[in-house]
């Protein structure tokens, strides 16, 4: 698969990334290598092989409906780049 500017732009938009043209060229090259490697996997014959999703055979790992493991608001807000005493603050999502 050929990585073009449109695909890089689309991925950048989905991941909310921004970069200049020289960075874009570099990313294009890196992505191309990643895709080429993935393309190799397509050479494998996986007819009749179920997709592997889980690394263990466990099922029904459930928990009881109990309130536990909460952190305080101060702890919750600690790592946020911007916050006030109650809320996380993010750029305005809706323009008035």
């Amino acid at each position: 698969m050929k990585i073009d500017n449109a695909l890089v732009d689309r991925l950048a938009e989905l991941s909310r990334l921004e970069f200049d043209d020289s960075a874009k060229e570099q990313i294009k090259g890196d992505l191309q290598k990643i895709f080429d490697m993935m393309d190799k996997l397509n050479d494998l014959n996986v007819d009749g092989v179920e997709p592997l999703i889980y690394m263990s055979d466990e099922v029904n790992v459930l928990r009881a409906d109990e309130v536990k493991g909460q952190v305080t608001r101060e702890e919750a807000l600690l790592n946020a780049p911007q916050h006030d005493s109650d809320f996380f603050k993010v750029p305005k999502v809706i323009k008035k």
């Binding site: 109650d86 809320f87 996380f88 603050k89 305005k92 999502v93």
Partner: peptide, 11 residues
């Protein structure tokens, strides 16, 4: 969106 003039507040 309307509590703070510059930011959206998230709960």
């Amino acid at each position: 969106h309307d509590l703070d003039p510059y930011y959206t507040l998230v709960d």
